[in-house]
């Protein structure tokens, strides 16, 4: 899923300074699962915003709403009849949701309330970690199911670097060395011969470096 964290309140309060009535808009997908921008977080931020503005003596009306999916024009359309009554939309969706609103409602200011972080998985309750960098050409089949792009601090394809120590990455004791994990899993799978093969320089065109990406499914596109 896409993970995110709420922006600091100081930044949020500053960004809504000019407004007196906002729509605080959550999303029922990834940001709900990572507790950054679902119904619950919308309610919490709504309360915090009202309190924060009252404390300044500048009360603000905060309407709370959570869409099924903010990155989908179909659901964003729901706002069309009511949106004009607000000064701005404060979106708690990931950057994709924020932009879908911006695209559909060109004259409505949209403020991001969260910092979109990474594509990750839940390690344990309340802990999420990066797992995929969306490189567009997945190599997990050669690396024991552990991603060298997203999980090695130097995205090394023929690792590990000299900094790998006791299973940890040189950058921090809190970060596992991806190549230690890869090696351990290859051993587990009886696939250590995969390690000896030189992995070729990556074609980063399929990643962001080829310019903004797009998927068109001709069997589906109307």
């Amino acid at each position: 899923m896409i993970t995110a964290t709420r922006k600091p309140m100081e930044e949020i309060l500053k960004s809504v300074e000019p407004f007196s009535k906002i729509l605080l808009l959550g999303c029922n997908e990834c940001v709900t699962v990572c507790h950054a921008g679902g119904r619950k977080e919308v309610a919490l931020l709504g309360a915090a915003l009202r309190l924060g503005r009252l404390q300044k003596g500048l009360p603000m009306e905060v309407e709370e709403l959570t869409l099924e999916r903010q990155c989908d024009p179909e659901y964003v359309e729901e706002l069309s009849r009511t949106i004009d009554q607000y000064d701005a939309v404060c979106s708690m969706a990931c950057g994709c949701g924020v932009q879908t609103i911006a695209e559909r409602y060109p004259s409505m200011p949209v403020m991001p309330m969260v910092n979109t972080a990474f594509m990750g998985a839940s390690e344990s309750h309340g802990v999420w970690a990066e797992r995929c960098a969306g490189c567009g050409d997945c190599v997990l089949g050669y690396t024991g199911g552990i991603c060298p792009v997203a999980r090695c601090s130097k995205r090394i394809f023929n690792g590990p670097c000299g900094g790998s120590t006791k299973g940890k990455c040189e950058i921090s004791n809190d970060v596992d060395c991806a190549w230690q994990l890869i090696w351990d899993r290859l051993k587990e799978l009886g696939q250590t011969e995969l390690y000896s093969k030189l992995m070729e320089p990556k074609d980063w065109r399929t990643a962001r470096d080829g310019g903004p990406r797009r998927i068109v499914r001709e069997d589906m596109a109307l």
């Binding site: 600091p8 309140m9 100081e10 915090a48 309190l51 924060g52 404390q55």
Partner: peptide
């Protein structure tokens, strides 16, 4: 932490 951030 939140209450400090919003000066309550």
């Amino acid at each position: 932490r939140l209450l400090d951030e919003i000066n309550i």
